[in-house]
Design a protein around this nucleic acid. Structure first.
Lengths: 110, 110
DNA sequence: GGGATTGGTGGATGATTGTCAAACCATCCG
DNA sequence: CGGATGGTTTGACAATCATCCACCAATCCC
């Protein structure tokens, strides 16, 4: 596969709210979202994310769901895939939503 | 059943983000949320909500999911149940999230 | 070239879920 | 009382989904 290619993902205007919420309504994918919240690119290696109990193909599946929902983008470079949050696209499509979600995910119970 | 009772629902501090997103990650329940966004109490009659194609027991099921996720509260009065959004509870638990969700649900694609 | 690395694919399986239908329950009213 | 009203419960069924496993594909490196 050629380098610096992007795995298939929806165009910003096609990101659907219900699909997005469905994608985030799973504990594993919420964990991934929080990892990606730092804005950096991440490899697909689930180690260090608290997902060591899951099979790698399971994690791969969850990553695909996030990408197809428009949450993340995946850049292919050699053997590696670099996953990162589509923060500006999400902010364009649903202003304020991502920030509110990330704040909620880290909020203390009250 | 006694009047003015509340159907079982989680305490505010127990509302779980992933559970909430899972509940809203369904088109029927998103439709219900938008109906409830006016802050008023609603009967369980799905007519006028664009859900006429669904069986009443199906709608009842979706209403239960929303209630158990902490999205709505249901007051029992005689034969009727009055469903309404737990706006202040949600604002307390996840500040800004509900507003962002409602804005996103009505946002034009861009 | 050949092994190691990184990650995805496809099938199988069990669990969850959305839907309908029918029965049920409590309440109101004539 | 007895029927109508508003809504829930239960069971059945199909579809979706999360997970694992075995295998595969591309790339990097010795």
């Amino acid at each position: 596969m050629r380098d610096d290619e992007r795995l298939p993902q929806p165009v910003t205007t096609d990101i659907d709210l219900v699909t997005l919420l469905h994608a985030l309504g799973d504990p594993v994918r919420m964990t991934l979202l929080l990892s990606y919240a730092d804005g950096a690119e991440h490899s697909c290696d689930p180690r260090g994310l608290g997902l060591e109990h899951l099979h790698k193909s399971t994690v791969s599946h969850h990553m695909r769901v996030l990408r197809e929902a428009g949450v993340t983008t995946t850049r292919v470079a050699g053997r590696n895939r670099f996953v990162s949050l589509r923060r500006s696209d999400l902010d364009t499509r649903f202003p304020g939503l991502l920030d509110a979600l990330l704040a909620a995910a880290t909020a203390p119970a009250r």
